[in-house]
């Protein structure tokens, strides 16, 4: 037993060293976010000697932080709520219908998951841009697109869960005279809590960090999301890394806070969402 304990301790030390390596980039960001540009260039590894807090106020201004944060929150919340609503209903329909149509639809949804956005983004501009359907360049259009891209995986996850809910519940509700929608809303939906958590978390993380779709569809600077705005620190500010690090730190804070609030659910969501 003693030997086993020593071995465990050895592996624990190995893991700790690796953890330091994994955390090091973030430590560098923290350290340098309060240095002026000379201090960053001369001594990027050391502790800051003079704390230049103005990096943060400057970064907030440069990237329109509050506006970008608001935009990101808005699009993520709208999109996730809409994905939960649409895909839970679609999954309920598909799980409870034995027609050939529903079987084919389910297959198409599953197959669509390998289509990369890159194969759609070029037609996207023609289809939804000024010379096509002319959707406005704002958070609502963006959320609408996310529903289109998110519905397949989310429906798949809901489908697996709903298939395990006994059909006798639906029957009982129907005999009591409940309409299909009422059955869904009062009987099925309340049982979907765990899978709704999984669907919300997986979609939130992806939508929050997505860069390519908003960079193709959001033209108006006032509408840009946090990842797009963070990109202002590329190139232009490489002479002032202190400022850039402050900006990057600000961009990271919301999602890290979200993680620590929802840690258990996020880990559970990833484990559950990985069942294919």
């Amino acid at each position: 037993m003693k030997r086993a304990k020593r071995i465990n301790l050895f592996f624990f030390l190995v893991a700790s060293v690796l953890a330091v390596v994994y955390a090091l980039p973030f430590v560098m960001v923290l350290l340098n976010s309060v240095k002026d540009k000379r201090a960053v260039r001369n001594d990027p590894l050391g502790l800051p000697t003079e704390w230049q807090w103005s990096n943060f106020t400057e970064a907030i201004r440069k990237m329109d932080y509050w506006q970008a944060l608001g935009n990101s929150l808005l699009v993520t919340i709208i999109a996730v709520v809409a994905i939960v609503a649409t895909s839970s209903m679609l999954a309920y329909y598909l799980a409870r219908s034995r027609t050939k149509f529903s079987a084919v639809t389910f297959l198409v949804l599953v197959a669509s998951m390998v289509v990369p956005f890159q194969a759609l983004m070029i037609p996207f501009v023609g289809l939804f841009g000024e010379r096509g359907l002319n959707l406005p360049s704002n958070q609502f259009s963006l959320a609408f697109f996310y529903v289109g891209f998110g519905v397949a995986l989310s429906t798949f996850l809901y489908h697996g869960f709903i298939s395990n809910i006994p059909y006798s519940l639906d029957e009982a509700a129907a005999i009591d005279g409940a309409s299909p929608f009422r059955t869904f809303r009062t009987i099925i939906l309340p049982m979907l809590g765990p899978v709704t958590a999984t669907v919300s978390i997986i979609n939130s993380l992806w939508i929050w960090n997505d860069f390519l779709l908003p960079s193709v569809v959001l033209i108006d600077t006032d509408q840009k999301t946090l990842p797009l705005k963070t990109f202002v620190f590329y190139g232009k500010y490489t002479s002032d890394y202190g400022l850039a690090m402050a900006g990057l730190l600000l961009s990271m804070i919301p999602i890290v806070v979200f993680y620590f609030l929802m840690q258990r659910r996020i880990i559970a969501g990833i484990s559950a969402g990985a069942v294919k």
């Binding site: 993380l205 990842p227 590329y234």
Partner: peptide, 13 residues
């Protein structure tokens, strides 16, 4: 948890 743009900029530094 963190988007590729932020990670890329950190590692560029």
């Amino acid at each position: 948890l963190i988007g590729g743009v932020i990670l890329g900029l950190i590692w560029q530094f």
